[in-house]
């Protein structure tokens, strides 16, 4: 047997090592194998393409959008779709399509920030709880359970009451609320990996804990984290929308998908498409994220069953 230390090859976990929350079985499968399965999943691939397009378009918003998001044309206010303005204009004559594209950038920035905060907070704590076990685990798990029984938007609003409104503060708050989700996932997977023989072998060979966590534990939970990132990204987009709709996140004139709906809701009776369009953009994005997550999850579990067969 090769010793898994001192620059030796990292040992991969046996295929059926890890089972985590929500019945997701995570094999020690190679990423390439998962990708090969995923490539034949039509809906996952369509979602992936849609997401890549959305990310590209919003990142390159100044290049892609026909106009600046706050460029006013007061002579052409509240116009329906036309050749010049594909989705029409709002109450200040601003081009809705341009505001949607730029708004998507703000929304995705906010959602990405929230997920990043959740990852940075949740993974180390989850590794600690899952690897150490004992009272550390008990305390952290109880705290996570407690935090999860506060409604996310309520807790985020409480935090915003102190930090003040704004998209960054609001999404930092949402990220904090999401920390327990990654904590629980990482904890469950880590404590399963922790009990495998090869970790015991690594410990007895004197491999330092940090190296065990980094080289052996993390790679084995990466794919299930990916599924969770995709799902939470969707949840964060919906949370951003809610908070900006209330006027506590992105604030006028900054466009985000939520603040666009909030700004147009008073004109719902006369100009419903101003409310409809940003909402549809959100539905398409979140639906794609969920379908992609479903696809990856399926690909992972199929990889396991094939490995066992």
């Amino acid at each position: 047997m090769t010793a898994p230390l001192n620059g030796g090859e990292p040992v991969s976990v046996p295929a059926d090592a890890v089972v985590l929350e929500e019945g997701v079985a995570v094999p020690g499968a190679q990423p390439g194998g998962v990708w090969r399965t995923l490539r034949h999943d039509r809906w996952a691939m369509v979602s992936l393409v849609v997401l890549v397009l959305i990310v590209l378009a919003t990142t390159a918003a100044p290049l892609v959008a026909p106009q600046g998001p706050n460029e006013q044309d007061l002579l052409n206010r509240l116009q329906g779709p036309s050749g010049q303005h594909l989705l029409g204009t709002d109450e200040l004559g601003r081009d809705l399509l341009s505001r949607l594209i730029h708004g998507g950038r703000v929304t995705l920035y906010g959602a990405g920030l929230a997920v990043l905060v959740a990852l940075v907070g949740g993974i180390p704590l989850g590794l600690l709880a899952g690897y150490r076990g004992g009272w550390v685990d008990a305390v952290l798990s109880r705290l996570a359970d407690g935090l999860m029984s506060v409604p996310a938007i309520v807790l985020a609003l409480t935090i915003v009451a102190v930090l003040g409104p704004g998209i960054t503060n609001a999404m930092l708050a949402i990220g904090l609320v999401f920390v327990p989700r990654f904590l629980r996932l990482t904890r469950a997977t880590t404590s399963d990996v922790r009990r495998t023989t090869f970790i015991e072998a690594s410990i007895s060979l004197g491999c330092p804990t940090s190296r065990i966590l980094w080289r052996h534990v993390l790679p084995n939970i990466a794919s299930s984290l990916l599924v969770q990132v995709s799902l939470l990204m969707g949840a964060a987009i919906l949370a951003e929308a809610a908070i900006s709709f209330l006027g506590i996140g992105a604030r006028p004139p900054t466009a985000s998908w939520g603040s666009l709906i909030g700004g147009a809701s008073s004109r719902l009776a006369t100009h419903p498409y101003l409310v409809l369009a940003p909402g549809l953009a959100m539905v398409v994005t979140v639906l794609s994220l969920q379908l992609l997550a479903d696809g990856v999850r399926d690909a992972l579990s199929r990889g396991t069953s094939r490995g066992r067969a």
Partner: peptide, 12 residues
């Protein structure tokens, strides 16, 4: 309906 924000469904 899982992908749509509830308040937006409300507006529609």
């Amino acid at each position: 309906s899982i992908a749509a924000p509830p308040f937006w469904i409300g507006l529609v």
